[in-house]
């Protein structure tokens, strides 16, 4: 009986210690998780800002004047041809720059 009591007491103390260490580990892990989540959130926010900046810089209202300044123009209907027509021209040798 005494042996049983001592064993039980030992088990209780061991369990308490185990619980304490588990609790401690869990808190440490939670702190790490929170830190990593905060980092991920910061990175997501940074990515969102970068995407917004890229979209702002690539907006057609900004690109168009820059493109026109480089001598570019919207596609004209004569510039659109089917692949078959190009092949025919190459075969007949009638491909001439326009």
């Amino acid at each position: 009986m005494r042996l049983l009591s001592i064993s039980a007491l030992f088990m209780a103390l061991a369990s308490a210690f185990l619980l304490y260490s588990l609790n401690y580990d869990a808190r440490t892990l939670e702190a790490r998780l929170r830190a990593q989540e905060a980092t991920a959130e910061t990175i997501r926010a940074d990515i969102a800002v970068l995407k917004a900046e890229r979209a702002h810089l690539a907006r057609p209202g900004r690109i168009e004047p820059l493109a026109r300044a480089q001598g570019l123009k919207p596609i004209a209907e004569r510039q659109v041809v089917k692949m078959r027509e190009i092949e025919n021209r190459l075969i007949t040798g009638s491909a001439t720059p326009r």
Binding site: M1, S5, M11, S15
Partner: peptide
């Protein structure tokens, strides 16, 4: 009394072990 205390300690230990 001793038996009751021992059984109680045992029950608590088993409960803690079970929870673990």
């Amino acid at each position: 009394r001793a038996l009751t205390v021992s059984l109680s300690v045992l029950a608590m230990s088993l409960a803690i072990a079970g929870q673990l």
